[in-house]
Write a protein that binds this DNA or RNA. Structure first.
Lengths: 137, 137
DNA sequence: CTAAACTCTACTATTTTTATAGAATTAATT
DNA sequence: AATTAATTCTATAAAAATAGTAGAGTTTAG
């Protein structure tokens, strides 16, 4: 499951994607437009900025806008950025690999291969979902 | 990601599946064989029993054994039983549906359709993984 | 200089997860 | 009937993650 944070991040990105070209959105507008708690959203937007998904203008009349194009922001990326691994166990993860502490011998682990297969399918599906593709439904 | 509980459940089921026909396994054997904390495993085996995945014999020389055949226990089922929804949000879930509290109008939610597509693919993949299929890798 | 916005650090409350403890019950054997 | 070895049940607790909130600081336009 997605955390609220990831859900809110996706909703915020969608909101920004739907604004006119060169438009700058204030946090309060995104908060009200997408129904996200304002103070929580502030943190999330800063995170999105650190991840180079959005950029901001400070000071009066400042706000946020998409940095990456909406065609290039995938669900897979956002999930990894906020919630981490897409695989069901760290030992089956590409970007967040860690061996299981209870695994006697990873090469003999019967679970791992199945989970890698799931990961491959899920990842492919999640890479196919972009902010732009979500808009078109 | 899977919780430790779900991972341990899968490992315990795999352990049971690998025993000879009509064999009964004590908790301590499963615990040591699959490297799962014994007291935690007790709870998990009771859960698996309540879910009719395994059955048990009480008293001396008692223990656990598979109730469902290993071909009929899927990753999807075990995930749902222990960790709940396979979908990334409750609003996209079949078995654990709940509306999002922050969703103004579910029909207009741009996220939901994408997440349903992911769910369909993930579910199909997870239904294809059984305890028996895991054994054969 | 002031207003309005983002930025940053810290904190807190709640929930979930990951177990552990110990008593009760059941069943086979002696 | 007593003993032993196993499951079963209830309660508890420590740790981690989640979901926020508070408030001061910084930046910029006018």
């Amino acid at each position: 499951m997605l955390s609220h944070k990831t859900k809110y991040a996706l909703k915020a990105l969608l909101y920004l994607a739907q604004q006119p070209e060169n438009h700058i959105s204030k946090t309060i507008e995104i908060s009200e437009g997408a129904n996200i708690p304002k103070k929580f959203l502030e943190q999330i937007l800063l995170d999105l900025k650190r991840g180079h998904f959005v950029s901001s203008k400070q000071g009066k009349f400042g706000g946020y806008y998409l940095l990456k194009s909406k065609e290039d922001i995938t669900l897979a990326e956002i999930h990894r950025y906020f919630d981490g691994a897409i695989a069901l166990l760290p030992c089956a993860s590409i970007n967040f690999y860690e061996p299981c502490s209870d695994c006697k011998n990873e090469a003999d682990c019967l679970l791992r291969h199945g989970l890698i297969a799931i990961r491959d399918e899920t990842l492919k599906a999640m890479q196919g979902i972009t902010i732009a593709s979500l808009e078109k439904k």
